[in-house]
Design a protein around this nucleic acid. Structure first.
Length: 238
DNA sequence: AACTTCCTCAACCGCCCCGAT
DNA sequence: CATCGGGGCGGTTGAGGAAGT
């Protein structure tokens, strides 16, 4: 028993959107705003799944979208963000105004991957392709093994997996960073690292006493409104 | 010109998270 | 606490255009 589908598939159009469908969707959202996607198609007179409408709007029809080629700066920013965040396209898109997660994902897969490979960089790890993989085992000295034998009454393996049940509860605490003094004033951590000074995401001049907790083992949270990459009100999962 | 292969990217699918009940 | 439903996300697909033969 799976979940019921998000809409009645038998009576919905699929595939490329027509100009008329686009116009209907735009007109409806202009009049009523983005609301309940599930009920939107019916209300707008569209034979489409709500998800399809949402995707079409977000990825193609939204007025604030930037069309056209990615700049060199955008390329480099995507690479940096990907090295930090991995395939979290929506988070990456959040730092590129006018770009969508889908667009960035496509661009990554078609252009940047190749670009990195041509530089000799593995796009998945951001390490040199011929660089040996990170060590996954650690050795114990004879003395350490002796201690463990004593405790466990059984001989340990020669090598053990490095942190097999590792709970990487990383704590990233921007407040420890010293604010950077510039000609125009003091920059907060987010500004100085992400270049978002004087945007709505900038916290300069606000209370900086915030912490972010990222639990690599499947959940994440940050306490208080500020954010690691300069996104206010961010909630994200790793 | 005709055909094949490659590439791009819009769109879909299925899963997960989270708020409401 | 458990369940349900909506929204959102990342992975994948496939149509259509470009490039190569």
């Amino acid at each position: 028993m799976g979940r019921s589908p998000c809409c009645e598939k038998a009576h919905t159009n699929k595939g490329a959107w027509t100009k008329e469908e686009d116009d209907r969707l735009i007109a409806y959202i202009r009049a009523h705003g983005e609301g309940c996607w599930r009920s939107l198609p019916k209300a707008a007179g569209l034979l489409r799944c709500g998800k399809s409408c949402r995707l079409r709007w977000i990825n193609y029809l939204r007025p604030d979208l930037k069309r056209g080629n990615f700049t060199e700066d955008e390329d480099e920013l995507i690479i940096k963000l990907h090295s930090l965040l991995g395939n979290k396209w929506s988070l990456i898109a959040g730092r590129l105004p006018g770009r969508t997660d889908n667009e960035i994902k496509n661009y990554w897969n078609t252009h940047i991957r190749r670009k990195l490979l041509s530089r000799g960089i593995d796009p998945a790890t951001h390490r040199a392709v011929n660089e040996p993989p990170e060590a996954k085992t650690i050795s114990f000295s004879p003395k350490e093994e002796a201690v463990m034998r004593e405790r466990e009454c059984s001989p340990p393996p020669v090598k053990r997996e490095k942190c097999p049940d590792l709970n990487l509860e990383l704590r990233i605490s921007p407040p420890y960073q010293q604010n950077i003094q510039t000609e125009s004033g003091t920059l907060c951590f987010a500004c100085s690292t992400m270049g978002i000074h004087k945007t709505k995401d900038c916290s300069c001049g606000t209370d900086n006493n915030n912490n972010i907790n990222i639990n690599i083992n499947g959940s994440s949270s940050y306490n208080s409104g500020y954010d690691f990459l300069g996104l206010k009100g961010w909630s994200f999962r790793l």
